[in-house]
């Protein structure tokens, strides 16, 4: 139970990786503390763009799995990243980093909330931070778009599935679980068919040589 799976890439594209579980704890604490209005975009920024522990493609892959599973997506993502470097100790370090400091802050806020809410500047600051959070997420979405170029579904099926999930959430406001399960299963089935096509083609060209 204590060793991560050996056939998972142990380091990011530039050969970077965390030095210890404690380094994971610090990295996840720092990114969680920057995560106003959502941690996902900050996680992508810190782990992929700045530290280089994962490639963009690996990040999309892990996040896709994380959101199919029950539990908060970013907590699942943290544990998967921690686990692949240091087994269960890494998973624990990453989750604790993600939650501990923000937990203390949110409880302190809950205890002192009524006094804070009276200041209009506080509401204004929260609004400004919300706009930045929206910008961070949109930039992240554009970066993720590039990772679909190598997807074995091909551009048309990718566009179809992506637009369907966008419209289902943004326009029809369907529950997230329906979309993840419904479109996820559809995407899985289509991709399974494409895997068979791609593998059969590879086998034919292999025989032809």
């Amino acid at each position: 139970m204590s060793t991560p799976s050996p056939d998972v890439a142990p380091s990011g594209p530039a050969g970077n990786r965390p030095a210890s579980p404690f380094a994971l704890f610090i990295a996840f604490s720092l990114l969680a503390l920057q995560g106003f209005g959502g941690v996902l975009a900050v996680a992508q920024r810190e782990l992929v763009d700045r530290r280089g522990w994962l490639s963009r493609g690996e990040f999309v892959e892990l996040y896709s799995i994380a959101q199919m599973l029950p539990g908060p997506n970013v907590v699942n993502l943290s544990l998967m990243i921690g686990d692949r470097y240091f087994g269960w100790r890494g998973a624990l370090a990453a989750i604790t980093g993600m939650l501990f400091a923000p937990f203390l802050i949110v409880i302190a806020l809950a205890a002192g909330y009524e006094r804070l809410a009276e200041y209009p500047a506080v509401a204004g600051a929260l609004r400004g931070m919300g706009a930045v959070a929206a910008g961070l997420i949109l930039a992240m979405a554009f970066k993720m778009l590039g990772t679909l170029r190598d997807n074995l579904l091909g551009p048309w099926l990718c566009a179809l599935l992506g637009l369907a999930s966008l419209v289902a959430i943004a326009v029809f406001r369907l529950p997230l679980a329906w979309i993840v399960i419904g479109l996820g299963l559809l995407g899985w089935g289509l991709a399974r068919w494409r895997v068979a096509v791609v593998d059969a083609r590879a086998a034919r060209t292999g025989e032809g040589r």
Binding site: G37, G38, L40, V60, E61, Y63, S64, I65, Q67, M68, G130, A133, A134, I137, L138, M140, A141, M144, L145, T147, L148, N151, L152, L153, L157, C158, A159, L160, L161, G162, L163, A164, S165, L166, A168, I169, A170, L176, I179, V180, L183, G184, L186, G187, W188, G189, L190, A191, R192, R194, V195
Partner: peptide, 21 residues
């Protein structure tokens, strides 16, 4: 197939999150 099939759905959901925010 699972990771390839889920990726475009994930990207669509992140765009939707940005839009809703």
């Amino acid at each position: 197939a699972f990771t390839a099939g889920l990726a475009p759905v994930t990207v669509g959901l992140v765009f939707a999150t940005g839009w809703l925010l």
